[in-house]
């Protein structure tokens, strides 16, 4: 089982968490100004990197808070976790 460090609770077992997809996607402030292609991009198009990926997780069976994590999709190693609203941390290669 993965051990995931919740920014609020500390290290906790994976089974307490749920996955929330790619992080740092801002809802457009004025959706009516977007054309179909831009709206499609916002709703559906996501990165699918082989390597580091900033993504949302929720400590649903713990503090229940959403937070962000940088995970390496090749190894499943979680390199950093941080609170919603904070920028993705710089992680040396």
């Amino acid at each position: 089982m993965l051990i995931i460090p919740c920014p609020y609770c500390g290290e906790r077992p994976e089974l307490e968490f749920s996955y929330g997809g790619q992080a740092h996607i801002d809802r457009p402030l004025a959706p009516t100004d977007l054309n179909d292609e831009e709206w499609n991009e916002y709703l559906y198009v996501r990165a699918n990197p082989k390597g580091r990926h900033a993504e949302r997780w929720r400590h649903i069976h713990g503090c229940a808070r959403f937070f962000n994590a940088v995970r390496d999709t090749r190894t499943d190693h979680i390199l950093a976790t941080y609170k919603v609203g904070e920028p993705a941390p710089e992680i040396p290669a």
Binding site: C9, R12, L15, E16, H61, G62, C63, A64
Partner: peptide, 9 residues
């Protein structure tokens, strides 16, 4: 803390 016991919160 909230946590899991088997499949129950």
């Amino acid at each position: 803390t909230r946590t899991m016991y088997a499949r129950a919160e």
